[in-house]
C-alpha cells in the first residue's frame, strides 16, 4: 500500500466545523433518537446519583428514582470503612493512571517520532512488531506477566501495575501518525543547522509541536488504566494497593453476606466516576479521535 494521504490528524484540535452543517431544518426523528440515546446512556448514572442518597433499607424498598436524604451519612460510612481505605483506593487509582499514563505517553512519543522521521536499519521490522502488538489480546499477557514479575518479587507492589501500563503499542502507532503529520522535516533540518542535537530537538521542537496529539494519547492511556480491572486484580493481593475497580469489586462481594454493605458500594461507585466525568467534560475538545487516521480513503 503506497499511500500518502495521511491528512493532518484530527486530534490536533480540528478547526471549527463548517457552518453549513449546523444550520439545517431540524428533524424531529433525529432529535427523538438522539434523546433516547442520551437517556439510555445517562440512566444508570442518574440512578446512582439518586440511589446514593438512600438509606440501606430504602435502596431495596422505595421507588428506583425516588431520592432521599442520606447522601452525607453514606459518604461518612464509606469514609469510615476500614479507616478510609476507599480514599486510599482513589489515590492509588490516580497514581496508577497519572504516572502510567504520563510515562507511556513519553515512551510512545519518542518511539513514534523515531519511526516517523528517521531512516534506520530495522525500522520496518520494529514498526511491524509494534503493529502486531496492537492486535495482541491481553489474555495471553496476564498470567505470564504475573509469573515473570513474581520471579523478581515485584507482584503485589505498585510496580506490578505501573510497569506493564507503560507500554502501549497503539499509543506508539498514534504518535507516529502525529509526528508524521505535525512535524515538518524542514523544521528538523533547521534545528540541526542551528546546532541542536537530537535530544534537544526532541524536547524543544518536536514534543511541543506534537502537544495536542500527546494529550490525546495521555487521555487514552489514563482512562484505560483508570478503568482497568484484570491487571491489578491479578497482580495485587494487598488491598491497600488496590485501585478503585478492584476495591469496589471486593466490596460488592462482601455485600453478598452483609447486605448493609450494598449502599456503601453504591456510594463508592458514584464517587469513583466523578473524577473521570469531570476530566471528560473539561477536556472534551481533545476527544476527536480518528482511529483510521492516515488510512486509505475509499
Amino acid at each position: 500500500m503506497s499511500v500518502s494521504t495521511a491528512r493532518p490528524v484530527a486530534p490536533v484540535t480540528a478547526a471549527p466545523p463548517p457552518t453549513v452543517r449546523g444550520k439545517r431544518r431540524s428533524s424531529p426523528l433525529a432529535t427523538v433518537l438522539l434523546l433516547l440515546g442520551a437517556v439510555y446512556a445517562l440512566f444508570p448514572v442518574v440512578w446512582v446519583l439518586i440511589a446514593a442518597s438512600k438509606s440501606s433499607g430504602e435502596l431495596f424498598s422505595t421507588f428506583t428514582l425516588a431520592p432521599s436524604t442520606h447522601l452525607l451519612d453514606n459518604i461518612g460510612d464509606l469514609s469510615a470503612y476500614r479507616d478510609g481505605l476507599y480514599w486510599r483506593w482513589m489515590a492509588n487509582t490516580a497514581l496508577y493512571a497519572g504516572v502510567g499514563g504520563a510515562a507511556s505517553t513519553v515512551v510512545s512519543a519518542m518511539a513514534g517520532f523515531a519511526l516517523a522521521k528517521y531512516d534506520f536499519p530495522g525500522k520496518r521490522f520494529v514498526f511491524n512488531v509494534i503493529l502486531a502488538g496492537v492486535l495482541v489480546p491481553g489474555v495471553i499477557l496476564a498470567i505470564p506477566q504475573y509469573l515473570l514479575l513474581a520471579k523478581v518479587g515485584l507482584t503485589n507492589t505498585y510496580w506490578s501495575v505501573l510497569l506493564p501500563s507503560m507500554i502501549t503499542p497503539y499509543g506508539i502507532y498514534l504518535c507516529r501518525i502525529f509526528a508524521a503529520a505535525a512535524v515538518p522535516t524542514e523544521v528538523l533540518e533547521a534545528a540541526r543547522i542551528d546546532g541542536a542535537g537530537d535530544w534537544r530537538t526532541l524536547a524543544r521542537v518536536v514534543l511541543p509541536m506534537m502537544r495536542a496529539g500527546l494529550v490525546t494519547v495521555f487521555l487514552f492511556q489514563f482512562v484505560a488504566i483508570w478503568n482497568n480491572f484484570m491487571l491489578p486484580y491479578i497482580m495485587l493481593g494487598d488491598d491497600h494497593l488496590y485501585p478503585l475497580t478492584v476495591g469496589l469489586n471486593g466490596l460488592l462481594n462482601q455485600g453478598a453476606s452483609q447486605p448493609a454493605m450494598y449502599i456503601t458500594v453504591v456510594t463508592g461507585a458514584l464517587i469513583s466516576i466523578i473524577p473521570l466525568v469531570a476530566l471528560f467534560l473539561g477536556l472534551q475538545r481533545y476527544w476527536r479521535v480518528d482511529l483510521g487516521a492516515g488510512a486509505v480513503k475509499a
Binding site: N227, F229, F280
Partner: peptide, 10 residues
Amino acid sequence: FLPYAVPAVV
C-alpha cells in the same frame, strides 16, 4: 460518550 468514563466494573 459519558459511559466511556465509567469503568466496566462500575
